[in-house]
Amino acid sequence: MAETPDPDAGFAAAILRRFAAIAESHLLYSFTRSWVVMIAAVFAVTIIAAALAAQWIAPTNPLDLASLDLMDSRLPPAWMEGGDPRFLIGTDDQGRDLLSALLYGAQMSIGISLAAVGVAILLGVTLGLISGYFGGLFDTLIMRAADVQLTFPAILTALLVNGAARALLGDQRLQGGEFWVLVVSIGLAFWVQYARTVRASTLQERHRDYVQAARLIGVPSWKILTGHVLPNVLGPVTVIATINLALAIITEATLSFLGVGLPPSHPSLGTLVRVGNDFLMSGEWWIVFFPGVVLAGLALAVNILGDWLREALNPKLR
């Protein structure tokens, strides 16, 4: 839309407008009506904000191996007998401060999940738009591929992609690239939903008269897709994205837990749980407990927010 002179044509402006509309709409109203949603929102925002600020608020840097002291390993939380006031919720087997590891780990998990959902949206929305608008052979191919993919659980898809990447690149060259392998494998596991939803909405929108009116004056297809159709099919995408974020967090954790995710030196919520799992039987419950609680709580809170968003945005349920 580069040559359109209208000042509010920009995507950022559109998003700002959207927020302005939300502020005075039904959305905010329904939000304040449910304490469950409020608690979920407060919890999610706290965790995400703390995770994003890990570099500044964490007592130590868990990635700095030089600062670790094995003498500090497996200390219980500070309030328990044998606890150390330096380590509020205890330490892990390498003597890392668990709170710091948790903050950095949450940051890593949230980062991967956001990026993965971004990949899924980009892929799914693009394919869905093209499928729905042009139809034909491309549409058939994409949608059959989507059907096939839907028969696999997301975690299996992610495992396959992950395995393929490792096989192709080799563990050596993968070094440091684990983040992107995770992002792509989770992203590929989730695109189908976006593609299907966007395709269905596009099928409806393309027959609407405002699209016909644009076709009539010879607006090129790509411009109709980005300028007319896309803004009108994005509503459901926001909802799926929120719910997907929760799933992505869990998928990342599962992959990391299974050992195909990040190396233990780069903690994510999943690797922390995996490490902690080894000590569960020996009584050092805190190593697995705190990452586990944060993981479950975050996933649940984001999911509740997604459900609420779906209901609040659905005109039929109003």
């Binding site: 040559e3 359109t4 209208d6 405002y210 016909q212 004056i217 010879g218 009108n232």
Partner: peptide
């Protein structure tokens, strides 16, 4: 040019009136 039956469907709900009216001029 064409004028359609349903004025609720023939105008893009996410566009300002100015942008809608200007679309042919710009195109």
């Amino acid at each position: 040019q064409m004028i359609f039956q349903d004025p609720y469907a023939s105008l893009n709900p996410r566009w300002t009136v100015g942008r809608i009216v200007a679309e042919p001029v710009v195109t």
